[in-house]
Write a protein that binds this DNA or RNA. Sequence first.
DNA 1: TAGATTGTTAATCGATTAACAATC
DNA 2: TAGATTGTTAATCGATTAACAATC
Lengths: 220, 220
Amino acid sequence: MTARARKKREAIPQGVVGRLPIYFRYLTELAQMGVDKVSSAQLGEALDFTAAQIRSDLSYFGSFGQQGYGYNVAELLQQVRQILGMSRKYSLVLVGAGNVGKAIGSYGWFRAEGFVIDAIFDIDPHLIGNIHGGCAIRHVDELPQYLANRPADIGVIATPKEAAQNICDLLVAGGVKGIWNFSPAHLDVPDDVIVENIHLTDSLLRLSFWLNERSQRSGD
Amino acid sequence: MTARARKKREAIPQGVVGRLPIYFRYLTELAQMGVDKVSSAQLGEALDFTAAQIRSDLSYFGSFGQQGYGYNVAELLQQVRQILGMSRKYSLVLVGAGNVGKAIGSYGWFRAEGFVIDAIFDIDPHLIGNIHGGCAIRHVDELPQYLANRPADIGVIATPKEAAQNICDLLVAGGVKGIWNFSPAHLDVPDDVIVENIHLTDSLLRLSFWLNERSQRSGD
DNA sequence: TAGATTGTTAATCGATTAACAATC
DNA sequence: TAGATTGTTAATCGATTAACAATC
């Protein structure tokens, strides 16, 4: 570990963490294409970042390159996987078996990368007992008991907004340390629980804003 | 319009745009609860921002509050809707009728807010002709011809990664100015086209990173 | 009026970038 | 070796925040 990586160990900026998965995706592509080496300049060119930013980001975690050469793709990919916490398995419980829940449950990438959905919960009596992706759908009333017996790392919330905070509280009470929230709700959690939001509506509204901004300006 | 709003008109920071939909969501809730007024301090408390940041963000677009009073909820909500470009309708085409595409197509909020999916495309012959949300699924080969006859504002990409850039090119060639990308691909588009990404895998990996970081630190 | 809260400025903070010594 | 590219520093840039005059 470099001096800088050690020094900065205690506070990784959110922006850096936001870019790591982008690096991961592109390095995976390069590896699949059989590319051996890559420079920060090449990475930056492909991903619309500056080379300096990529080197700076990586240096938070160590020295993975070689002067005059660049980075070995396979090695850097392995390091980024490690940094992202992909060297272990995660147990997930999914709450909400509607359209969004079903889409999440059917996305094979998660399981392949070690994020395994072990249980699915819903409140609709008609869905209880149905099998989805090898998982029987259970009633949400069983959630606390289930978590007491089989702790989970991550709770996925794919419920309507109204139920989200309540489900979140149950998940946290059950020992879940990470919440992946697909509902358009702002969740309150204790300091030791991490929330990662997928706010579809926010994303569409940002797109709408820029579309509008663009046309306003060209109309000036 | 205030002096500041005028001055800053030409460059709205991305961070500001990222927060506007959050304000919109919370103001909608307040309005539904029948709350009349709200201060920047109250908004900040509820949403985990500083009051100064909220006032600063809003001041990019005008002066919507009153000293000693705060903001009128209904009025500010109306202003934020306007700012976000929600005062008009948008025509969307959705490409990819798999699990993710189906989930997007069934999400009623979009239509209610003026984002109307007018057509759905897929490459799977078995799906062609099926009706989804009042839309017949068409073959993706018809996409260019369709856009030539019925221009769309936004193209939604819910295809596998491999097809995404190709579909994106077709959408752009067809005159679409906004891309809502659900595939884990980095899309190249011309300068006048806006891409808004929903990268599910990136989001899960950020969660994984923070979970891991947390446990590493507590283990120090 | 007195109390409250805005919109804005100036100060602070943090993130990005340019530049370069180190070195493969 | 000479050319290339890293990791890091210092400089720049931009975003956040604290403070406050203005004023409802």
